[in-house]
């Protein structure tokens, strides 16, 4: 608490709202806990700070649900309007690459959970960084596979737009499917790229021994974000890759 600010006046409301003199248990300086270097000035203690940050991340994830939700709604509406076209278009995606990527992403969620756990239990910086970097490698693998899939679609002119080519029965519905495919997976991939960026920073912080049982909120909220991205894919995979399987795919 900075010196030099005037004391708040001792209130014109006797007995209703009292601004108490120093010595109350919420005054940082008289707090039993020593002042943690990571404690920001406007929080009372580390617990309040950590709770605020995780709650903030959860609220943010709610906005993310609604953000992707608009796309899922479009998918729902257009699939009810073009059921056959969606099956036909879906059958042209490689389920093997999709399933491989699903496994990769689930595995990365596991390593992320372990990264959070290693910070939470004050394990060595080597362990913390190991799990973070493993997660990043898995995330990069996912994106690499995505590049292969995208370039295959570009090669076959299956990208919506003036040059869209479709030799199946339902070119119009297939174009809508691929518009949604690219928007949904593209937005998902963008989230992964952002996640990799954040994790780079977190890994550096971990290497500098910033995280331990007392303070691991940044790793924790990065984990929340990463798991959310995983959840989006858990829905995208069956909805995009698998709906045309029995209809006859590769």
């Amino acid at each position: 608490m900075s010196d030099g600010y005037p004391q708040a006046p001792s209130v014109g409301l006797p007995g209703r709202v009292s601004i108490q003199a120093p010595g109350n248990p919420h005054d940082e300086q008289s707090s039993a806990h020593p002042h943690h270097p990571k404690l920001q000035h406007h929080f009372d203690d580390m617990g309040q700070q950590a709770e605020a940050s995780t709650l903030g991340m959860w609220v943010f994830l709610v906005t993310e649900i609604m953000f992707f939700g608009g796309l899922f709604l479009a998918y729902l509406v257009y699939r009810t309007q073009n059921p056959m076209a969606f099956q036909e278009a879906s059958a042209h995606l490689s389920w093997k690459l999709g399933a491989f990527n699903t496994a990769v992403l689930i595995f990365s969620s596991l390593t992320m959970a372990l990264a959070v756990r290693s910070a939470q239990t004050s394990e060595s910086r080597g362990t913390q960084v190991f799990w973070l970097v493993t997660t990043m490698i898995l995330g990069a693998t996912f994106l690499g596979v995505k590049v292969i899939e995208y370039s295959e679609k570009f090669a076959h002119n299956n990208v919506p737009g003036p040059n869209f080519v479709w030799d199946g029965q339902y070119p119009a519905g297939a174009e809508i499917f691929y518009s949604l495919y690219f928007c949904m997976t593209g937005l998902h991939a963008l989230h992964m790229v952002i996640g990799l960026g954040i994790m780079t920073v977190i890994a550096i912080m971990a290497w500098r021994r910033q995280f331990n049982t007392e303070y691991f909120t940044p790793v924790e909220i990065t984990g929340l974000y990463w798991h959310f991205v995983d959840i989006v894919w858990i829905f995208l995979f069956p909805l995009l890759y698998l709906i045309g399987r029995h209809y006859g795919g590769h």
């Binding site: 709610v62 609604m66 939700g69 796309l71 919506p160 174009e175 809508i176 937005l187």
Partner: peptide
């Protein structure tokens, strides 16, 4: 927090349709 993300994605889709000519809302494109 519950509403704004939806307009965000909607505006992005409008941009995608206008710039990249991806069929999303235009009836001419299905």
């Amino acid at each position: 927090i519950l509403g704004t993300p939806v307009i965000a994605i909607t505006v992005l889709l409008v941009a995608a349709e206008r710039v990249l000519h991806m069929g999303i809302f235009d009836p001419a494109l299905g």
